[in-house]
């Protein structure tokens, strides 16, 4: 599905990603872990097309197409979804209105007809159940005055609505209590299928108790320093990141 080769990126001339290689296939769940400042969120943002970052080398192929050539909205329309670490507030625009615009833009890009109000509401009702989100929240201004948990749940709700092929969850567990975490993870799991893939970006192992990864990669100083299966995450939980840092220092 997506093939990242030697990806390098910097912000304001500061190198953050120093050569990332990663291959994600349909049906897989990958976890990217790493200490603060290792470049996890940068990777997520670069894949979504954030313009603050400059790609200085490497390539990203997505279904055989050069991803780095596409505008953020084109990537989204082609099925890449980023659940933001800090979802943005947009005053005066309700989540409902926002989602309606988004869904119809995605449909338009595929040459499909816009959803009418009735069918849109039907879809919304269905997806609301999935992430256990309240109607009243969706009629309020997008993310404005939402609690941390509500924002994250809203991200997963939007993911359910847009049915992405590749979902990237950027620190979706940060700021969540255990109940909220379970709801969010539950939503993600329900959306999982053999045709889509999930990349979970996280600092802690606890989310991976609920979203079980097939692969775990450890990012440190802009490089993947180790890959393994879910046991790697447990190992990391036990030993902490110092072990990785020491190992990296030796190389």
């Amino acid at each position: 599905m997506i093939s990242i080769k030697n990806l390098q990126a910097s912000i304001k001339d500061k190198k953050i990603l120093k050569g990332i290689d990663l291959e994600v296939k349909a049906g897989e769940v990958h976890a990217i872990m790493g200490p603060n400042g290792s470049g996890k969120s940068t990777l997520a943002s670069v894949l979504a097309g954030r313009e603050d970052y400059e790609v200085t080398g490497g390539s990203v192929e997505y279904f055989g197409e050069d991803l780095l050539d596409l505008d953020p909205e084109e990537r989204s329309q082609k099925g890449i979804f980023l659940a933001f670490q800090y979802p943005v507030e947009i005053p005066g625009v309700s989540t409902t209105n926002f989602m309606k615009t988004a869904i119809n833009k995605v449909r338009e890009s595929r040459g499909e007809k816009a959803l009418d109000a009735v069918n849109f509401l039907k879809l919304m009702k269905e997806k609301m159940k999935l992430v256990d989100i309240d109607q009243s929240l969706l009629s309020r201004s997008l993310n404005e005055g939402f609690s941390g948990g509500e924002k994250k749940r809203n991200e997963i709700f939007q993911m359910a609505m847009l049915e992405p092929k590749l979902a990237i969850l950027d620190e979706t567990d940060s700021g969540l209590d255990i109940d909220a975490l379970k709801i969010v993870a539950d939503g993600v799991n329900k959306l999982k299928s053999k045709d889509n893939a999930t990349v979970v970006v996280t600092h802690y192992q606890r989310l991976l108790n609920y979203i079980v990864p097939d692969f775990v990669h450890i990012l440190y100083k802009g490089k993947i320093v180790r890959s393994g299966d879910k046991n790697l995450a447990s190992e990391l939980e036990e030993k902490g990141y110092d072990w990785i840092k020491e190992e990296a220092a030796l190389v």
Binding site: P91, M99, K105
Partner: peptide
């Protein structure tokens, strides 16, 4: 810019995003 990017990430082009935000305002 973060508002625009957020909209784009959901598949909404820049022009529509601005219209959306202005109408919200």
């Amino acid at each position: 810019e973060d508002q625009i990017f957020y909209c784009q990430q959901r598949g909404i082009d820049e022009e529509t995003a601005v219209a959306l935000i202005v109408n919200g305002f």
